[in-house]
């Protein structure tokens, strides 16, 4: 009979029971976009160092549900650091204490038994809160829709190897393209600026041969869109890159600044939505 063993079932000799942690959480609760929110305190004794941060919140939510209270709403999907859904301000740092780590990849072993943890949503005029810790990041999508692409309708493509791309360019493009659109850069930036996100896409396409024809129109339209979404300006503070789970480098912002200036002063095409 094909019954799989499972934890709990025939526990193997070298298994271990993880220690539990006591935590005090201060969480932003807000019923919906319209109503005001406030920080609410919760405690749990059922966290363990092996849990991910979101699994710790799952446990708290199960407890809340059984107590007849509303569980804490937070965004998540892949839970492996690639979809960009998750994102919490943890003790004042976007995605928490570990570098190059998304909230869903953060594990409780990064905290101590008895810790107090402040959990807040991303804060930006362009990211309005929808509920509790869930914010609306559709402004990012609109920035891409305004021109963050190469116009290449299906079917018309030449052979993939007809176009050579020097390895360094390909690598730089990849590093910029690794952005997962999580919004931590905006959340952490003292100016709530979306420069790192926007610049990452601009840089990705600007260094590739395929990206050249629309290069200046693209940066023009994307920046105009970014401005109109209500993000702050970039004063080159650099916290965005420090918290970026994909370690997008500030270089991309320099590249955007240069291309945008050229787009306006030298190569004056594109602009407000062509």
């Amino acid at each position: 009979m094909a019954v799989m063993a499972r934890p709990g079932a025939n526990v193997a000799p070298n298994s271990h029971i993880p220690p539990t942690m006591h935590l005090t959480l201060h969480v932003w609760r807000q019923h919906d976009a319209a109503s005001p929110g406030k920080m609410v305190q919760y405690t749990t004794d059922d966290a363990s160092p092996d849990m991910s941060f979101l699994e710790m919140l799952d446990v708290v939510n199960e407890e809340l549900t059984l107590r007849g209270e509303e569980p804490i709403a937070f965004e998540h999907d892949c839970r492996e650091g690639i979809c960009g859904s998750c994102g919490l301000m943890i003790n004042g740092t976007a995605h928490g204490p570990e570098a190059a780590t998304t909230t869903c990849q953060l594990h409780m072993r990064s905290f101590k038994d008895g810790d107090e943890i402040y959990i807040e949503p991303w804060r930006s005029k362009a990211f309005p809160v929808i509920k509790d810790l869930v914010v609306d990041r559709s402004s990012f999508d609109r920035i891409i829709q305004s021109g963050g692409y190469i116009s290449a309708p299906t079917g018309g493509a030449v052979d993939a190897n007809a176009m050579l791309v020097a390895k360094p360019d390909a690598d730089f493009a990849f590093e910029a393209a690794a952005c997962i659109g999580c919004g931590a850069c905006v959340a952490q930036c003292p100016n709530a600026s979306a420069m790192l996100f926007t610049a990452a896409k601009v840089a990705h396409l600007a260094v590739l041969p395929q990206g050249q024809p629309e290069r200046y129109a693209r940066v023009g339209q994307m920046v105009e869109r970014m401005e109109s979404e209500g993000f702050g300006n970039c004063t080159n503070i650099g916290e965005c890159s420090a918290v970026c789970p994909k370690g997008i480098a500030l270089d991309v912002i320099g590249l955007l600044n240069r291309d945008f200036r050229k787009a306006r002063l030298v190569n004056n095409d594109g602009g407000d939505g062509m």
Binding site: I150, A152, A160, N161, L164, L208, G211
Partner: peptide, 22 residues
Amino acid sequence: TDIIDQCVAQGVPFAREYGGLL
């Protein structure tokens, strides 16, 4: 084979060799 052509045209940064080929 058309898929790879299409994706490269969109700017998908596939791994490259030093010669610039895929």
